[in-house]
Amino acid sequence: MRRVAMGFLLAGLGLSALAWPAFAHHAFAGQYDIDNPIQLTGIVTKIEWMNPHARFYIDVKDESGNVTNWNIELGPPLVLRRAGWKLDSLKAGDQVTVAGYRAKDGAKMANGTKVTLSDGRQVFAGSTADGSPKP
């Protein structure tokens, strides 16, 4: 029900003739599916502190023991840096849980909306929405 409602919202209200393009590089809704939220837990294998988006990759093991490498997209380094995330905020080998939305085209990709370390600390918990101080 909620998926239907949200789809309607985006379709019906996003058509403002004067709206600024609400994206720096691309609209995340053009690539990722708000109706397909995902939560992944795995080990960080690689970090790409690069443009136009910083990325990190995690190995996620399913119940059968099969491992899939997921590509997690973030904002660009210059924005992450201003908001308090450093190059070493996340390291290869860290176990993390990522919340985000899956790519619409079915690729093993997701955008990252929340990244939590195994000890419960939230990486980049600098947003006021989290109510947390900047790291």
Binding site: F23, A54, L74
Partner: peptide, 18 residues
């Protein structure tokens, strides 16, 4: 009133940023 984010709230490129 349900508001919809202009961007999916991606870290570093989401609601807080905009």
């Amino acid at each position: 009133i349900p508001l919809a984010e202009a961007q999916l709230n991606t870290l570093g490129d989401g609601r807080e940023f905009y």
